[in-house]
Design a protein around this nucleic acid. Sequence first.
DNA 1: TCATGGGTAA
DNA 2: CGGTGGTACCCATGAG
Length: 895
Amino acid sequence: MGFTNTLLELLKNQQPTHLAVVFDTDAPTSRHIEFEAYKAHREKMPEDLATAIPYIFRLIEGFNIPIITQDGFEADDIIGTLAKKAEKKGFTVYCMTPDKDFGQLVSENIFIYKPARMGNGAETLGIPEILAKWEISDVSQVIDILGLWGDAVDNIPGIPGIGEKTAKKLVQEFGSVESIIENSDKLKGKLKENVENFAEQGLISKKLATILLDVPIELDEKSLEREDANRDLLEPLFSELEFRTLGKRVFGDDFSITDANGKTGAGQMDLFAPATIATAPADALPEPAIPTRHIHNTPHTYILLDTMDAQQDLAKELSHKKSFCFDTETTSLDALTAEIVGISFAFEKGKAYYIPTTADWESAKATANIFKEVLENPLIEKVGQNLKYDILLLSRYGIKVQGPLFDTMIAHYLIDPDTRHNMDILSQNYLGYSPVSIKELIGPKGKNQLNMRDVEIEKVKEYAAEDADITWQLHEVLKPLLADTKTLELAQTVEFPLIYVLAEVEKNGVKVDVETLRSFSNLLQADIQRLEQTIYDKAGAQFNIASPKQLGEILFDKLQLDPKAKKTKTGQYKTGEDVLLTLAHKSDIVQDILDFRQLQKLKSTYVDALPGLINPETGFIHTSYNQAVAATGRLSSTNPNLQNIPIRTEKGREVRKAFIARDASHVLLSADYSQIELRLIAALSEDQNMLEAFRAGHDIHRATAARVYGIGLDEVNADQRRNAKAVNFGIIYGQSAFGLSQSLGIPRKEAGAMIDQYFTQYAGIRRYMSRAVEFAKENGYVETLLKRRRYLRDINSANMTVRGFAERNAINAPIQGSAADLIKVAMINIQQDIERLGLQGKMIMQVHDELVFDVPRSEAEQLSGIIRDRMQGAIALEVPIEVEVGKGDNWLEAH
DNA sequence: TCATGGGTAA
DNA sequence: CGGTGGTACCCATGAG
């Protein structure tokens, strides 16, 4: 589908006059001959391509596209050579292939064509885009970066210790791999060492990455001229593959599947996306690459309002608007300590206002309060980028923002969750406009970075007003895109209203008992020291146990615990928990090390870190929820991450005891969805057996064990239940038989048999899984109950690992994402009830399937009921939803 | 400051 | 034949 879609889109958008598809052949190329490792890599090409290729050829034949191959040369080289020749003849050339492969080729007439992803228009990458993307001054330097950094996909090694950032920096500074090697004396330390020791490898990598432009092949443009598609060939193919939508797109609505049964093989089919080359005469090119727009070459009216009269006039004007954009400039990124420096407003393209405030808190508050009425007006929509920040900030100034929201960051998160959503990138991509960088204003990150307040007001005005202007413009672009992707409703009914709830939860904060943590810390410290000593004694040496490097050397060099010890890619021994566990029987030092690690982790990450995160003003911990990072729709939590507080081990649970109610008159309520993901998979798959188990109120893991082992419910023993539980969870994530055997410590065959048996019993679930993958292959995305989308661009990849990843996501994203939908709806409804009823209880945490509240004892019962009802009733489903509500003085008791 | 290895949660 | 569930966050080390 990747190939098919891309092809259709190209034909439609670019309307190429000439087109060819280029393939590799089996014949060895110079790279194979010169570089052994590369050869090995290339020969590993998956055999399932073989099943796909017949379809591909039929498709290409159906579209009447010539195929070009050349023994001894790789497709990229052929395309490169032809592209250069075509360029000389005045053609505009589009290469469809990853940009890292073709970056070096891009020139005036050669572009990389990137097909549209849903919600994202098709792009052509020209010189400016490549330069910006790679941060280089010349397109040929793409291969220098690959020479240094390498490329895992194509098995190009690069130079060890040099990642993407370092590679870019070095190339910026020295220009090429050769020059870096020549000037290696200007480098320092390990970097210098690596460049010198691996110079040869760097050069080889560069050569491997270089596209050859001297393939002995002629450009016969006559033979590449486009011809009409051959319907007689394509129609049966589309029918066979069940490409209904595509068929309609190509042949119009009268196309229909003729034989729904002839679908054998479609499931395993793999349509890969070979590089294609499309050419069109230069004068027929519809749109030239747009030069980057920025503040200096774009007309704009940014107005500084520094008198109260002018500010009041603006406030009045805003009060008549249905919608406006606002943005605050502050002294810090932390909304709970930041102070306002100024506010900007925008409501028409190209025009914005900036209102500065003084450093004095009261006077800043007075200025902000001029806009209190419009900001609190429940009928006016507020547009912004990351509005949660502004809402939290303003709440500290006594302004309670109300009304519908439109957050451009979250809007884009719904349009395409896997990409980035910061304003600069959105502006570049959707407006073709490059905003003033914050770095230009306050300097680069570091100790010398200025405070927004230290910057000249004129400059801040330009920056701040531009921000509001861009955000306003983005909102105009993104809103229709939300509609196009059918996510507008999700945005307006769930994600945007949730912003208020999250702001509230963050503001409420969690109380932690510092004393509990301090004394626990001391206990841990004593244990850690004892273990340390034991380990030194057993090892016969003192070393830093927390250093994987030193630990590996002790275990495998000195103690020789495993002659076949595995190493990481940097040559260190692997010392992860799974590795150590397999060695536990060889020496009891291993268990000591594991214990040491556990305690050390607990102490440093939780016990000692949490007190430092208490806000001195409030005495509470205020985490920050990010609503736009997890591609499945889940929230994430930072500073601290309250979503990974230990619970599985005895000692870990101690940490939870330190999370307490705000005072003796309050208690914590913890409400937990029970097995929500399994219930959702049952509902989505409509598997009758699993639905029945839930409806009957059975323990689902026990019920599964009974089915898988073919025994009665009460005959299930603990082991069988444990195994069944592992399968249930494995299924959700698309775990393999190998994975299951690992996590259960049983032979792979046994695990495989269990999975087979599972699917026999729960045939609906197997059907759901293949349906999800099919849907993704057909549509390029999957969706949740509330139509939250996730695009899976790799779903048709030829690379088994990459494709497998996409396939697992196709199965998992709707489940995990629907669970996220559910709890988000519940959160909004609960918060509404709390406000409507004027309750004092507060929502203080969300942990994916759990909500925690800090409530007056007198409200505990009433709120428990509300919470349970709202969580159970969030979305009506064909499966009963169970919520467990617990109560206690601390989180552990409540959970 | 950055990369790496490791570990925690749902 | 080898590799074999995912995401997100945070910590310490080691070298700059």
